[in-house]
């Protein structure tokens, strides 16, 4: 089977690099499954998981939004933050979740509320992925 080159990069450096038979990600417009030879594509991602399948094994990476750039033989995910599932610090994610919830409840101003909501989503995404609920 033909494989794709996959790299997931963040401002703090690459999080994942390797080959894959298939990459699945959740774009804003819906779930994407990408095989080698896909048309060139750019799509924004939701706060979700990117799954990289190779040799029957799946590597799951939590991403906080960002973009996916697809070319026939290469997939690049650009995210402001990304973590391999096994590297997620559940304790910290829980703390972040609580903090975001507190801020949402206090509700000061629209921008802060939006930011807290994003933080909450990110934290929930990480906790769920780490605990294998998604």
């Amino acid at each position: 089977m033909r494989t794709l080159e996959v790299s997931i990069v963040t401002p703090d450096g690459p999080v994942f690099e390797g080959n894959a038979e298939m990459v699945s990600a959740k774009a804003k417009s819906g779930e994407l499954g990408i095989l080698a030879g896909h048309v060139p594509l750019v799509a924004p991602l939701t706060i979700s998981a990117v799954r990289v399948k190779n040799d029957g094994k799946t590597q799951t990476v939590a991403v906080s939004g960002g973009f996916i750039e697809v070319r026939p033989e290469k997939v690049t995910v650009l995210a402001q933050a990304a973590e391999k599932v096994e590297d997620i610090d559940v304790e910290r994610a829980r703390a972040a979740k609580e903090r975001a919830e507190r801020r949402l409840n206090n509700n000061q101003g629209e921008i802060d509320a939006k930011r807290a909501e994003y933080a909450l989503k990110r934290a929930i995404n990480r906790i769920d992925l780490a605990e294998g609920r998604r």
Binding site: S29, L41, V42, A43, P44, G65, F67
Partner: peptide, 24 residues
Amino acid sequence: TAAYEYEPSEEEILEELLPQYAES
């Protein structure tokens, strides 16, 4: 670069991409 397809549309991608670009 290759001509991309944009999903959903160029405008919406710019909407997301440009702020992130400036931040980086």
